[in-house]
Design a protein around this nucleic acid. Structure first.
Lengths: 198, 198
DNA sequence: CGCTAAAAGCAAATAATTTGCGTTAATGGA
DNA sequence: TCCATTAACGCAAATTATTTGCTTTTAGCG
């Protein structure tokens, strides 16, 4: 139902979409999300409300659309020199972003939508980032856990805790990471491996 | 904001609440959740819409309220004779319930609400069920993982996958459970150690 | 029993959503 | 390049949902 993908990529349509997205971001910055309505967004974006209704159906789909764009990673995972360090830094940053008020709201928006395509996208973004870290690890000759193991062992617990009311602590996040590395099938890592200290 | 707790427990108020909850359940059984509106619920429940608006504020809070009641466990975890068996059976049932269309919808309702009190309740329900299994294990003198280890290692991955688009398979769920038991610190189980207080 | 106030009902006012139809402009083919 | 086609938009009227002020009911309590 929410167009976004299969719409005419050409000028006006894209312009309207960008304008609406910008309007949503601008409004969310300044006011409580409970007070943001479609007519308000339309006014801010300079379009007529029916355009939004026809393209997104309801507010939640639009919010989910906007949220997923903001959740798209905008940089490569930081290279610390070791797989474990890479994952640790990435995980802590991910956890911080997602625990913040904005991150929570965006995740809520994505999950609240009828259409779960956006939720799938978020999952894909995360997997891609971890895959990049894994690739680097392999290129260095370091052992690295399966993506699924990282998702189940680190990402899922973080997200679960954020969604269900508990703020995950840095210590807990480190423990989760340690657990995933410990559970990794121990085939011999090639010589170049260099685990971080501390 | 959503009353439900601190309301007058007496006759009329409780009657209205029950009537509204029943109306929601009845409507959700027969129609798409996108077509359920507050005026419709009010008509079905035989109350005036403004009553619902004043008590719950918006549809999502009401849906979350109803959903959390349906997510409340209505029976003790099945006793299979062993801790591992108990957890396995419970986990598989939990996974099935949550993966089903109804379970997903209820979880979505709970998470979509502004107020996350209901989400916390769901987490508490799950912890209580696992705590019961843990108590039985301790009473039998069996080792059992920490509740947090089970939440992070089994529950969180299941819920994450359901929310973010992947259906967790029975095999994967068993693997998760095996992992949690394997990672358990292997202190010797005392014979008939004291049950946890709770 | 009678008082007080929380919760419900009712109806008018306001706001959001849907819908029909005319207009604009992106796309694709001649 | 121009034209035909049609998706997407704008506008405005109709419908539906939400809010609000006021009245009535009734739970809670001395």
């Amino acid at each position: 139902m929410p167009a976004k993908e299969n719409l005419r990529p050409g000028g006006r349509s894209a312009r309207v979409q960008a304008s609406v997205h910008n309007a949503v971001r601008a409004l969310l910055k300044n006011m409580d999300r409970a007070d943001v309505t479609i007519p308000l967004i339309a006014a801010e974006a300079g379009v007529t409300p029916s355009t939004i209704y026809r393209r997104w159906g309801e507010l939640q789909e639009l919010l989910a659309d906007v949220a997923v764009e903001r959740l798209r990673p905008d940089m490569l995972p930081i290279d610390t020199g070791s797989a474990r360090g890479d994952l640790e830094v990435w995980t802590e940053q991910y956890c911080e972003e997602m625990s913040s008020g904005i991150g929570r709201d965006m995740m809520r928006d994505v999950l609240a939508a009828q259409d779960n395509a956006n939720a799938c996208k978020c999952d894909a973004f995360t997997r891609e980032q971890i895959a990049l870290i894994a690739e680097r690890a392999h290129a260095r000759g370091e052992a690295f856990p399966d993506i699924d193991a990282v998702m189940d062992g680190v990402v899922a617990p973080i997200i679960y805790r954020i969604l269900f009311g508990d703020q995950p602590s840095i210590e807990r996040v480190r423990d989760l990471m340690t657990g995933v590395f410990a559970a990794m099938p121990t085939r011999q890592p090639q010589p170049a491996s260099a685990p971080i200290s501390g």
